[in-house]
Design a protein around this nucleic acid. Structure first.
Lengths: 223, 223
DNA sequence: CAAAATTGTAACAAGATTGTAACACCGACA
DNA sequence: TGTCGGTGTTACAATCTTGTTACAATTTTG
């Protein structure tokens, strides 16, 4: 497995040191910057994950995340927010900005490491591309296509499809799908899965049939 | 899936109630005790997981875990620590004691549930497939097949067959089948079992004979 | 052997599950 | 500010599953 590069953006030097030390001990590369401005000065495209403190002087974590989302080269950079505040508002705000997870300070290193691993596992493509017949998804570009024609999928839809295509035949319960596709702290109904599957089916046209229902169990990708 | 039994050891009744409620809503059995001493008075061997508050009056969570590790019958009981303190020391201490995970209060119910599920999945050995002759069931695909041909089973039928195939020769009373296959909150007649066995037999064709009746006792899987 | 108990099974109705459209909310962006 | 895209929720319809019941078949019991 390629060594993972993590960028830590936090203005508390001590905390940064601890986190960086532990990430390195876990076999990852960790770089530290202490402000949003400094983060933007980095070559962000080379990282696999960013840990963003929400409360930064100047450009804060949310603002930084927003900018990442608006730049083609960093649009798909996974983000975990770190914050001392843990009000529901902040959490929601973070997820709307496309956070992959959210860790409230103070956190245990073990906990953070677990989240980091989970996000990396979720976002690391098994392959650059997955195909089945004329249906292809490109992890790097976050782009699906059918017979060469691009299909515009939303983030949720793409993540869903990727999970299914990465494990063809395996039946996922709605609960599993919520855990694997939705960020860890959002609470949504199981029926939400159904609706997203339906939307995905519609967009996939002919290949919509590949998303099959196993009544009483869940959904799976059918060849 | 066999119903999981969880023991919650925490001296805050409100928190216990919330956690127990949610575990039950997730289909598990949850018992609550409010002290380490009370926990030790339980038949701990029958649980699949213990949630231990670290800060308990009297025997605290760490001490309790230590005792669990020293007793043959509870040595392999998975443990998740709950704690308001989240100093690194505590965390490490917890893991040294063989904690399977560690959740800092305050935690979101969703988070805790995810951890519980993860630990249970990790500690529950499950066969991916079970076969007998040309009859095979694939847990991953939730799919039964006979001589390579897929047989469509409903959820109940599948769960029933899995239980039988996992314990060939063992006679299950109707009551046992109800307990193990049906969700704990539904109340149905014993005759319901008969009907489902009949349906299963019919779908299994030749292999229907494998579901044998022991009159006066119940049903079993015959080789 | 006859009566009683037990099990097999078809048929039906109730309940559960799923598909889907419509709606509401919210942030992004012009 | 208004519109738009994304997404979760809800409601209703369509479908599938499942429990119950009644009666037949079989086995056990006296």
């Amino acid at each position: 497995m390629e060594t993972k590069r993590i960028l830590i953006v936090d203005d508390e030097p001590d905390l940064c040191d601890i986190v960086a030390f532990n990430l390195r001990a876990a076999g990852m590369e960790a770089d530290v910057v202490h402000s949003g401005e400094a983060a933007l000065a980095q070559d962000l495209g080379r990282y696999h994950l960013a840990l963003l403190d929400v409360m930064l002087p100047g450009i804060n974590g949310f603002e930084l995340a927003r900018r990442l989302r608006n730049d083609e080269s960093t649009r798909s950079l996974p983000v975990i927010f770190l914050t001392a505040r843990d009000s529901e508002d902040d959490t929601l705000h973070g997820f709307e900005l496309g956070a992959d997870d959210y860790v409230a300070k103070p956190f245990s290193v073990k906990q953070l490491l677990a989240r980091v691993r989970a996000v990396l596992a979720r976002t690391t493509p098994i392959a650059e591309r997955l195909s089945h017949g004329g249906l292809t998804i490109d992890m790097r570009r976050k782009q699906a296509s059918i017979d060469g024609n691009e299909v515009s999928l939303t983030r949720t839809e793409f993540d869903l499809l990727r999970l299914f295509m990465a494990h063809p035949g395996q039946v996922f319960s709605r609960q599993q799908l919520l855990e694997q596709v939705w960020p860890s702290d959002v609470i949504v109904t199981e029926r939400t899965v159904d609706v997203n599957v339906t939307r995905l089916r519609k967009k996939l046209g002919t290949y919509g049939d590949c998303l099959a229902t196993r009544q009483g169990f869940g959904y799976f990708f059918k060849a």
